[in-house]
Write a protein that binds this DNA or RNA. Structure first.
Lengths: 267, 267
DNA sequence: AGCCGCTTGTGAATGCGTGCACAAAATCCG
DNA sequence: CGGATTTTGTGCACGCATTCACAAGCGGCT
């Protein structure tokens, strides 16, 4: 049966609790610090993972400017969070800071990359070479390099074989085969909404476990598949909500002010 | 002073408490329903707003298929959430359901649209007419119509004046003027990261209160400006994290299985 | 009319994430 | 070498969001 798309919230997975992931001898092999992190990985909150990615980008910017160490305060303001949150986020992946000093930029970079799985390259396939798909394909390895685009798909016969961003477009029918043989890890869906579910099914069939969905539909996927969605319309509508809310507050403030002034009060 | 980008989480606003949203005559069928909702609007959790937008889309799909009423259960599964959450989300905007029956599709649609501020059209400007900006400009009023793109900007002199999606491209310098005169409500930043902050400042200068940022930078904006960001790289890295996590679990499960089998246990 | 079954709306409980505040640690300096 | 200073790491408390579970309410059926 098809499970429902998980979207930053419901954790009701069949992963159960499984508190016994760690090996029996807990302190048996204490020499290294890595195994602890390996245990901890499972417990990093999703929100923290997203922020880790932000820290990583900020760090790379700092490294370019020759920074060697960075304090939690600096890094936090640069990333737009408060320092306590940053430190807690970092504590999920281990303790790589030096008290009284800060963090070594390159150490932290490497550790975050490791936790995010960026040491291995994740191959990406883009499906739907329309306006958006075109843009994605031309991103060329995607920012931060580590996500090479290794397959493109579309239904349009006129597009098949045409190279986009240096890669020929294949037909959607070939998704399962090509994804399987090229070991695609992440599928990006940039098709019209009507086609998205079918495309997604083919991706899953091809062994893709992670999907980034730009189509405005709720995808149904088996439980082991991770879906993230990026939805333009929804982002705009959220902003619209804030516009409306602010306009409303402004109105009510104005009426309140009017009322107050008619009462002779000072605003 | 520049406030930091808020990003789906910190709600530390002066929203106060105001617990009782009074519940006078429920079935009193007071001619208007607007005022009550107007009070409530402020207290809708951000996460719920995002889901309301999803419900809206699902509802419009159902309306097209001729559905008149829908139960919370149906709507919930179609939207990929559980029904309790859906009902609570809807309860934030009022009580428009009929017990024992469900919700009228069109009533619910209208009410959600009203809360999200979609009754008024929000004018959009797109800055940065590269691959992505091109795609955005060609979206043509954006999905769900209600977000007309009314201005395009870029630095490239070769692009100035060229119509993209039926709209001429203006120079970035003119952002403040044009946004102000055309009453742009939402600015979309699709520039390279280096230019994003300057563009954002100009948008704010032009009176834009809401920004949708595609550039991989943390924007600094004054407190009254709402920023939402869509970051490809971060989405991919989050997926990458899940790939790594799953791979790891699979490995540890395998080693566990190996250990178990070597112990003669049955897995 | 009155009962029955169905579905909503919501109080209460639970869980999770955030922010605070402080102890622990490390460096620097006298 | 010891104290002052700085900054990390984290226990704790708070608040928000999710989920549960059930009473309230409505339509249909007899």
């Amino acid at each position: 049966m098809a499970r429902v798309q998980r979207d930053g919230g419901d954790d009701a997975e069949p992963t159960a609790e499984l508190p016994a992931v760690r090996d029996q001898g807990p302190s048996a092999v204490n020499g290294r610090k890595v195994p602890m992190a390996a245990d901890k990985v499972r417990s990093i909150p999703e929100a923290a993972v997203a922020r880790l990615a932000v820290y990583l980008r900020v760090l790379s910017g700092m490294a370019e400017q020759g920074a060697v160490t960075v304090s939690s305060e600096e890094l936090a303001t640069a990333a737009g969070v408060n320092s306590a949150k940053l430190r807690k986020d970092l504590s999920y992946i281990g303790t790589y800071g030096t008290r009284g000093v800060g963090y070594e930029v390159d150490v932290l970079t490497v550790e975050i990359e490791r936790v995010l799985g960026l040491t291995r390259q994740q191959k990406v396939a883009v499906v739907g070479i329309g306006n958006l798909g075109h843009a994605l394909a031309n991103y060329g390895g995607f920012p931060g390099r580590g996500f090479p685009v290794e397959a493109l798909f579309d239904v349009d016969p006129d597009l098949i074989g045409i190279p986009v961003g240096g890669l020929p477009v294949n037909h959607i029918e070939d998704i399962p085969d090509i994804c399987a043989t090229r070991k695609i890890a992440i599928g990006v869906i940039a098709t019209p909404p009507a086609a998205a579910q079918a495309v997604c099914d083919r991706l899953v069939e091809g062994g893709v476990h992670c999907v980034l969905n730009f189509a405005p539909v709720v995808l149904q996927v088996p439980g082991h598949v991770e879906v993230r969605k990026v939805d333009l319309a929804i982002e705009l509508q959220i902003l619209s909500f804030h516009v409306a809310r602010n306009a409303e507050q402004r109105v009510s403030r104005r009426t309140a002010a009017a009322r107050a002034s008619s009462n002779g009060e000072v605003v």
